[in-house]
C-alpha cells in the first residue's frame, strides 16, 4: 500500500495569503497528502475555512494545529481544557522542565517540541520519555534547524537529537519528523526529510514512519475523538433513535 506522507509543521505566514497558497501547492507537488499548519487563536474561522478549501483544491488534507508555549504547568492545563476540542493537533513547546513533564504525561497533548537553539532547554530525557510513552505523546523533530544551522551549532544539535531519538526508541515514544519551515525554498520532499533523519541515526524504516505512519495515526486518532459519534476509545455511537 502506498504511504501517506504528512508534514505536521508547515509554518507559512498566514497574513500573506499568496505565500501561504504557494506553500500549500508546493506541499502537494512534493508528495504530501496531509499537512498541519499552526493556527494562531486570533485567526478567524473564515480564514481557517479558506485554508481547508485551498488544501482540498490541491488534493491534500488539512489538519488544524495549535502550538502552545506555556510558562507553567498550570497555564498548560488551563489552555488544554480550553483548546483541546477546537484543534486536531496540540503541540507544546517545552521551555521549562515542569512544563515538559506535565505535557508528557497529559494525554491531551499530541506533540512535544523542544527549542533547537537552546540546548540546555532540551528536556527529552529518560524520565520524560517514560511519561510520554504512557501518555501517548509523540516527540516532534523539526528539520529546519538542521538545514539552517552550520558548523558547531549543527554538530551539537545532531548529537543531542541522536541521544533523544535513542531514548525515544527505547521507551517506544513515536518520533515525528516535520519540516517547521516558513519559506518555500526550505521545503523538502518526504524522502528527503527521512534522509535528513539518518543524521541522527534514525533507521530508514523508522524515518519513513516518522513522516508517514506516525503523524497520520495521530491525526486519525484525534479526528475520531473529535467526531460527535465518539464516546470513549473503542466505543462509538452507531445509531440514535427510539428503537435503540
Amino acid at each position: 500500500m502506498k504511504r501517506i506522507y504528512a508534514d505536521l509543521h508547515l509554518c507559512p505566514n498566514l497574513n500573506n495569503e499568496r505565500q501561504t497558497a504557494r506553500m500549500i501547492r508546493k506541499a502537494a507537488a512534493l508528495g504530501y497528502r496531509l499537512i498541519a499548519i499552526p493556527v494562531p487563536l486570533s485567526l478567524t474561522e473564515k480564514k481557517v475555512r479558506w485554508l481547508r478549501n485551498l488544501c482540498e483544491e490541491v488534493g491534500i488534507e488539512f489538519a488544524s494545529r495549535i502550538d502552545l508555549k506555556p510558562r507553567t504547568p498550570r497555564e498548560l492545563i488551563v489552555n488544554l481544557r480550553r483548546l483541546r476540542r477546537r484543534f486536531e493537533i496540540i503541540a507544546v513547546l517545552c521551555e521549562t522542565k515542569q512544563v515538559a513533564r506535565q505535557a508528557a504525561k497529559d494525554r491531551r497533548v499530541d506533540l512535544l517540541n523542544f527549542p533547537a537553539i537552546n540546548f540546555r532547554r532540551r528536556f527529552f530525557d529518560k524520565a520524560e520519555a517514560e511519561l510520554a510513552s504512557s501518555g501517548l505523546t509523540a516527540f516532534e523533530i523539526d528539520v529546519k534547524p538542521l538545514i539552517m544551522f552550520e558548523g558547531a551549532a549543527r554538530v551539537r544539535l545532531m548529537s543531542n537529537l541522536r541521544k533523544e531519538v535513542a531514548i525515544a526508541q527505547k521507551f517506544r515514544v513515536p518520533t515525528i519528523v516535520s519540516s517547521g519551515v516558513s519559506d518555500e525554498l526550505h521545503m523538502r520532499k518526504p524522502r528527503e526529510l527521512a534522509a535528513l533523519a539518518s543524521l541522527f541515526d534514525l533507521k530508514e524504516t523508522a524515518a519513513l514512519e516518522a513522516v508517514s505512519k506516525n503523524p497520520v495515526a495521530i491525526v486519525k486518532r484525534n479526528r475520531e475523538k473529535l467526531s460527535p459519534r465518539f464516546v470513549a476509545p473503542g466505543i462509538r455511537v452507531i445509531r440514535r433513535g427510539k428503537d435503540c
Binding site: L30, V143, L146, I147, M148, L185, H186, M187, R188, K189, R191, E192, L193, A195, L196, S198, L199, E204
Partner: peptide, 22 residues
C-alpha cells in the same frame, strides 16, 4: 541516502537561495 541528506541540506548555490530535490 547520505547524498540525499546532503542534497536536502543545500539552501544556496553561489550565494543564491536554492533548493535541490531528488
Amino acid at each position: 541516502e547520505n547524498v540525499r541528506a546532503a542534497i536536502a541540506s543545500i539552501t544556496k548555490i553561489a550565494e543564491k537561495p536554492t533548493a535541490i530535490h531528488v
